[in-house]
Design a protein around this nucleic acid. Structure first.
Lengths: 130, 130
DNA sequence: ACAAAAGATACTAATATGGTATCATTATCT
DNA sequence: AGATAATGATACCATATTAGTATCTTTTGT
C-alpha cells in the first residue's frame, strides 16, 4: 500500500516550490531544487499544465506558474492526475463467489477505511504544505 | 492506491472458508468454492502454512486447517505476508531536498492518514468477517 | 536569425503482481 | 509394498504499472 507514487510526489513538491516563488519558475530551476531527472519532471509539468493546475509560458523568460491559488489546490486532485481514481475498491471475485457485493463483510470494512483516507486527503491543500 | 492485492484477497477468503468449515479443507475444495486458479492458490496456502496461519497435512485425506482461532487472526497480518510492510511512508526525496523528514509537511500528513488506516486494519479479525 | 524556453509523442527500463509448471515428499489405503 | 492422493519447494513466465529517456516541434524574447 503506497499512498502516493513518485510522480505525484514530484508534482506536489514542484507545485509547492512554484507557489512559494513569486516569479515564473523554469524546469531548470526545479531540477536544481529537487534533483529530479529533467525529462521526467518536464513530463510531469506538462501534465499539470494540461490539467490546468499550472500555466505555462514558452520562449525565453518562459516557465511555469500557478493557475489557481494554493489554498484551492487539493492534493487529492494531483493524485488523481497521476494515479487515476484514487480509491478503487475493486472486488477481485466473480459474481458467483461474491454474489452480493454490498453484503461482503470484507469489502464493507475496506471501503470504510478507504473512505476515511479519502476524506482526509480531500482536505489537504498546497497552502497547508508550504 | 489499492488497499489489498489479489493474493491477500484470495488468502483472506480461503481462511474464512476454512474457518467456517469444521473439517480439514483441500485445495480442490477451495478451487471449487472460490474459482481461483489452482496452482496460484496452492502457493498462497503454502505461504500461509509457512507463516503458521494454517496447518497442513500431507497425503490422502490431507489438506489445511487453521492453526489459530479466527478471532486471533488479524487481516493486517495476512496483508503483511503478501504485501510486506503495509504502510511504507517512503520518502522519494534525497536528504538535501528534504533535509528534515520529520518536518516535511507532506510526509507528516500522509503518515497520519496511513496510521489511521493501519489502526483500523489492526482491528479486523477473520472472526469478524464470517 | 538565434537561443531559450515549453509542447508533443514515442520509446525503453525496472519493478511488482499475477500466474504456471514441475518435481519431491509424505501419508493413507488396499 | 505399491498406488494414489494430498502438500512442499522451487523455478519460471506473463502482464501491468511505474519510472524514466529521447527526439523533434513550436513559441517567444532579444
Amino acid at each position: 500500500m503506497k499512498l502516493i507514487t513518485r510522480n505525484t510526489d514530484y508534482a506536489l513538491r514542484s507545485i509547492c516550490y512554484i507557489a512559494r516563488s513569486k516569479n515564473i519558475v523554469t524546469v531548470d530551476e526545479l531540477v536544481k531544487q529537487l534533483g529530479v531527472p529533467r525529462p521526467f519532471i518536464r513530463k510531469i509539468l506538462q501534465q499539470l499544465n494540461k490539467k490546468r493546475v499550472l500555466d505555462s509560458f514558452k520562449g525565453q523568460g518562459g516557465g511555469f506558474k500557478l493557475r489557481t491559488p494554493p489554498g484551492k489546490i487539493y492534493i487529492i486532485d494531483i493524485m488523481r492526475i497521476f494515479q487515476g481514481q484514487v480509491v478503487l475498491n475493486t472486488c477481485f471475485f466473480k459474481k458467483d463467489v461474491c454474489p452480493n457485493k454490498n453484503r461482503c463483510a470484507l469489502r464493507k470494512k475496506l471501503r470504510l477505511i478507504e473512505e476515511n483516507a479519502l476524506k482526509q486527503l480531500k482536505q489537504i491543500t498546497i497552502a497547508s504544505l508550504i
